Simulated assay, not measured.
Amino acid sequence: MDSKPRKEQPIAVALLSRAHDPDEATRIFTEKVQQRPLFLAPSSPPPSDARAARRRERQKKKQARKKALKPKPLSAAQRRRLGLYEVPREGQKYALFEPLHQLWLGYVREILGNEVYTGGEGAAAKLASADFHGAGVEVVRSGCVSRVGIKGIVIKDSRFAFEIITLKNRLKLLPKEGTVFRFEVPVPAPAAQDGLSEEQAGQKQEHPSAMVFEVHGEQFQFRSADRASRKFRSHFSSKL
């Protein structure tokens, strides 16, 4: 008898020997088990960053879908080239913008509240940040004498100029620099506040009082959307 102890086979070789020849089982065990490479550095993010990685991937896909669905906005040069800011000749009629003026009057009365009757610094601060599209405007002082007295409805409030439509259906461009504009807001006085009779109140409603304020165009050389966060101070203009 052989006195040498018999070397035990690995259990994987014994299982493979049931399905393959001994040589084939040994080869499979050597290549697939013993010589199999072991990757110590993982190729995927660690578990702590896996959630953040999935979130970033979802955001990238969502942004890609938005870019595919939402068209790129037009630039300012493209808008000017297409004439989006121009009023066509058939639309240059004062009567077409009168409803816009009535809407602006209601808008101004709403933002002023009770200060529409009293005025003061509070009313001035609210008017400085208001939108003047649809306002009735008149030039009272200007470095260019020919512009004084021009009246109309503001149809475009740009950074450096007011574009208005006059009663004679003419489109005028009024630069803000060196010009003082006057705005008038009719303010019907309530009968209860004045203590008037119904007949007197009716007469006063036919001829309502008006809140008149003047604006230095040099202080309004900003877009209407940018004036809401600015503070205006009174100063002397040497050009007037």
Rank of each mutant, 00 (worst) to 15 (best):
residue 72 K to S: 15
residue 150 I to T: 13
residue 197 S to N: 06
residue 235 H to D: 01
residue 154 V to N: 01
residue 46 P to C: 09
residue 76 A to P: 07
residue 188 P to F: 03
residue 43 S to T: 08
residue 95 A to W: 04
residue 127 L to R: 00
residue 85 Y to L: 10
residue 188 P to W: 03
residue 109 R to L: 09
residue 222 F to Y: 14
residue 71 P to I: 05
residue 162 F to N: 00
residue 201 A to H: 01
residue 141 R to M: 09
residue 6 R to V: 09
residue 100 L to F: 07
residue 38 L to Q: 10
residue 158 S to C: 12
residue 93 K to T: 07
residue 26 T to M: 07
residue 156 K to N: 11
residue 31 E to Y: 06
residue 188 P to D: 02
residue 214 E to W: 07
residue 121 E to S: 03
residue 149 G to R: 03
residue 143 G to L: 02
residue 229 S to D: 13
residue 67 K to W: 09
residue 195 G to V: 10
residue 59 Q to I: 15
residue 234 S to L: 05
residue 234 S to W: 02
residue 82 L to C: 05
residue 131 D to T: 02
residue 121 E to N: 02
residue 186 P to A: 10
residue 157 D to M: 05
residue 99 P to E: 03
residue 43 S to C: 10
residue 119 G to C: 08
residue 171 L to N: 06
residue 9 Q to I: 13
residue 224 S to A: 10
residue 43 S to K: 15
residue 168 K to G: 15
residue 56 R to K: 08
residue 144 C to L: 08
residue 52 A to Q: 10
residue 179 T to N: 09
residue 115 E to I: 04
residue 144 C to I: 06
residue 198 E to W: 08
residue 126 K to P: 01
residue 19 A to S: 15
residue 46 P to L: 13
residue 108 V to L: 08
residue 168 K to T: 13
residue 47 P to R: 12
residue 72 K to W: 12
residue 138 E to N: 00
residue 233 R to A: 08
residue 63 Q to E: 12
residue 212 V to Q: 06
residue 56 R to M: 14
residue 204 K to Q: 13
residue 129 S to P: 04
residue 162 F to S: 00
residue 108 V to R: 00
residue 102 Q to T: 09
residue 148 V to Y: 02
residue 166 T to S: 13
residue 12 A to S: 05
residue 35 Q to H: 11
residue 83 G to S: 02
residue 126 K to D: 06
residue 197 S to P: 01
residue 78 Q to W: 04
residue 152 G to F: 01
residue 74 L to Q: 02
residue 13 V to A: 13
residue 236 F to R: 03
residue 24 E to R: 14
residue 8 E to Y: 05
residue 209 S to K: 15
residue 141 R to W: 15
residue 137 V to G: 01
residue 108 V to H: 01
residue 53 A to I: 08
residue 23 D to K: 10
residue 236 F to W: 03
residue 27 R to W: 10
residue 84 L to T: 00
residue 139 V to D: 00
residue 162 F to W: 01
residue 44 S to Y: 11
residue 148 V to A: 01
residue 217 G to Q: 05
residue 213 F to L: 08
residue 107 Y to F: 11
residue 55 R to H: 12
residue 82 L to G: 08
residue 85 Y to N: 13
residue 195 G to Y: 05
residue 148 V to N: 02
residue 67 K to C: 07
residue 175 P to H: 05
residue 10 P to N: 12
residue 183 F to C: 04
residue 18 R to D: 11
residue 7 K to V: 14
residue 189 A to E: 05
residue 64 A to G: 06
residue 25 A to R: 03
residue 26 T to G: 04
residue 146 S to Q: 06
residue 67 K to H: 14
residue 103 L to V: 07
residue 72 K to L: 11
residue 236 F to D: 02
residue 110 E to W: 05
residue 150 I to R: 09
residue 175 P to L: 03
residue 19 A to N: 12
residue 117 Y to E: 00
residue 67 K to E: 11
residue 69 L to Q: 08
residue 93 K to V: 14
residue 104 W to P: 00
residue 140 V to K: 00
residue 101 H to G: 07
residue 16 L to Q: 04
residue 56 R to V: 05
residue 196 L to E: 09
residue 94 Y to K: 03
residue 149 G to T: 05
residue 158 S to M: 03
residue 24 E to D: 14
residue 72 K to P: 07
residue 192 A to T: 15
residue 210 A to D: 04
residue 90 E to I: 00
residue 238 S to Y: 10
residue 67 K to M: 12
residue 78 Q to N: 11
residue 141 R to L: 13
